[in-house]
């Protein structure tokens, strides 16, 4: 059966825009170069539509990359895993590569919004939004991810730790498009974990989130450490100083981690907002970091 649509529509909530569906990365590049910042790249749209409604963005052109063939993948390439620009949270959750090697990232993807959101939202989009609370940012930071960025046919790589500049601000300039996340495999003898703390289990923006990735020698001594926290600063934070203090330790229990509160406190700058107070965030960051470290060291549950 074929039916025609009524063409009258509801009064629009926001400024009119053009909608373009390019067929290849090259085509996007051309459009972005021509539009110089007037174009908004759209993939899952789970954040763009609320932002349009709140009038946080008012693009003249929306460039949808969702339909571009070959941009959705999770694949191994020698010693790295590559995640494509339109790969969704559900794609990550269903990937054996991620399930077997990147448990903290898997957990974070499972914690994004709801099943429906996970089916639409992309991982690259989660990073490009640059929310301090982006669920996948802390795990990707502790796994030392990098981003491949294209601008008018030229490619460059930026480490994720250098990508975020502030709330909703990144190093991306007009014309840029993130085409891929590059994820090195974790060390042989390593453990990683992600903990999200919110008021409920679904559809929740984190109050605090913590990801930890620790490597050990054969005696259980920590040889390499990465800690990252979300929602406790203007960007997702890589707590490098605290992590460095863990190297060389063989953690037996809580008593070995007494320094964490002070160390982690000096690296975060949590604020009061509708979800929580800054003080509570500071305390919970410490608690979750300790729990995550202990669990990675096989000394406790989280």
């Amino acid at each position: 059966m074929e039916v025609s649509m009524k063409t009258d529509s509801l009064q629009k909530a926001y400024k009119d825009f053009d909608f373009i569906k390019p067929n290849s990365l090259e085509e996007i590049s051309e459009i972005l170069a021509k539009e110089k910042g007037r174009a908004q790249i759209a993939a899952g749209c789970t954040d763009i539509i609320p932002s349009l409604r709140k009038k946080l963005i008012s693009p003249e052109k929306m460039v949808s990359i969702k339909g571009i063939p070959g941009l959705s993948y999770v694949e191994q390439d020698e010693d790295v895993v590559r995640i494509g620009a339109t790969t969704t949270m559900t794609d990550l959750i269903e990937s054996d590569l991620i399930r077997e090697n990147f448990p903290a990232l898997l957990k974070a993807a499972e914690n994004v919004g709801s099943r429906h959101i996970q089916n639409s939202a992309t991982v690259v989009g989660n990073l490009c939004n640059a929310s301090p609370a982006a669920d996948t940012a802390p795990p990707l930071l502790v796994y030392r991810a990098a981003l491949k960025i294209m601008n008018q046919g030229k490619e460059r790589e930026v480490e994720l730790r250098n990508f975020f500049l502030g709330p909703r601000k990144t190093v991306l300039v007009p014309g840029d498009i993130v085409t891929e996340i590059i994820l090195p495999f974790p060390n042989e003898n390593s453990k990683s974990l992600f903990i999200k703390h919110g008021k409920r289990k679904a559809l929740e923006i984190s109050i605090v989130s913590v990801a930890v990735n620790l490597s050990f020698d054969e005696n259980g001594k920590i040889t390499e450490a990465h800690i990252s926290c979300g929602s406790v600063g203007p960007t997702p934070i890589l707590a490098e100083k605290t992590a460095t203090k863990l190297v060389g330790l063989k953690v037996q229990g809580d008593e070995d981690l007494a320094f964490i509160l002070e160390a982690i406190s000096s690296e975060i700058s949590p604020i009061d907002d509708v979800r929580s107070t800054g003080e509570y965030r500071r305390y919970v960051t410490c608690v979750l970091t300790k729990r995550a470290i202990l669990a990675c060291c096989g000394k406790g549950d989280y």
Binding site: M1, V3, K6, T7, S9, D16, D18, I49
Partner: peptide, 22 residues
């Protein structure tokens, strides 16, 4: 299973088109 063809506004969400146009 029904094919609908027609014009929509670029800013219309799918829920809006389902309810208002279809």
């Amino acid at each position: 299973g029904n094919v609908y063809r027609g014009e929509v506004d670029t800013h219309q969400t799918l829920s809006n088109v389902l309810r208002e146009n279809l």
